[in-house]
């Protein structure tokens, strides 16, 4: 029963959100090697402790969010719009 403060909707229960994956995972160019592509597709940081995660506010505004969260204590440090983080890409 975590609460995420959606920058668009305000604090909402975790049931409205859906976890996607690691927040910091640049998409490789098509010219990358098979190994680099497999790494992008499958490898996970799976951090124990302070992690940066990608979530979508599925039952809310539908926007994509970067959640800085501790995977041991579930404390949330920050929730920011994904797009703001990726501005310029």
């Amino acid at each position: 029963m975590q609460v995420f403060s959606c920058p668009y909707c305000g604090p909402r229960p975790d049931a409205e959100f859906h976890y996607i994956g690691d927040a910091d995972k640049p998409r490789p160019e098509r010219s990358c090697s098979d190994e680099e592509w497999a790494h992008y597709l499958f490898m996970r940081a799976n951090t124990r402790g302070a992690a940066r995660e990608l979530w979508v506010h599925r039952a809310g505004c539908g926007r994509w969010l970067v959640v800085a969260r501790d995977t041991e204590t579930h404390e949330v440090a920050a929730v920011t719009p994904m797009n703001a983080e990726r501005a310029g890409t």
Binding site: I20, V56, R63, W64, P81, N83, R86, T89
Partner: peptide
Amino acid sequence: VAAMTAHLEAWREDRFDLSRAFV
């Protein structure tokens, strides 16, 4: 429908100018 909407939205936010494409 929900998954496709989220899929479109994800890539919109990831790669596009938010003022130039909407889902």
